[in-house]
Amino acid sequence: MGIVREKDMNWKNLWPLLHKEVILELRQRYALSGIVLHVVSMVFVVYVASVKPSPPVWNTLFWLIVLFASINAVVKSFIRESGARQLYYYQVVDPATLLLAKMIYNALLLMVLGGLALVAFSLVSNSPVQRWPLFIGVLALGSASFSVAFTFISAIAAKADQSATLVAILSFPVVLPILLTLLRLSVASFAPSTLSGGIWPDVRNLLAVDAILVALVFVLFPYIWRD
């Protein structure tokens, strides 16, 4: 190949890559505003359709909005840059660093989107959330988990043609355990106080699933990246 490739991750490259993602996002502003509009319109649909959702329905609707907004936000991760530029990255950075930068960036993006969805959805419907710190914590954890799963799946799907459909199909089973755990955790934040020991098994499960995913993703990503 003639290119000296470092085996270890190069942390020095992480910051420029992250910076590049933000620049790209701001440059292609239509993508970002598209997703924001997507969130807002879904919230509006819910508002028009049901006047007062009960707490379990509120919970389900909220996480569905977040889930589909997340898929749409992450799906473009690997397709928005041209093949030539991908080849350039391939030569200058290590795949793990590139993936980590994309995952961190997507996690932040999803947190912002989740926060936006939460604000918009709470405005149009009475939110049953009573313990806001817990709920926001769950949302942050959820965004990070979604980011790991969707970033990786979108890397696979980017190699195929109909990537948006593929991401939904491929990630659904992988994300389901995460989503179910998140739903249970957010129900815990609807009561003014529950036993604090009650949520930890779920949090632990979620972190365990995330740990498995992260480990796998870093092992497998180089095989996708190489073309």
């Binding site: 089973p173 992988v174 179910l180 499960n205 699933v209 498995i212 995913l213 796998l216």
Partner: peptide, 19 residues
């Protein structure tokens, strides 16, 4: 994807049903 999916089967079949 096969490797990825098989690993995610483990939480699916063993952790979640116990919840």
């Amino acid at each position: 994807y096969n490797v990825f999916a098989f690993a995610s089967l483990i939480p699916l079949l063993y952790i979640l049903p116990r919840m």
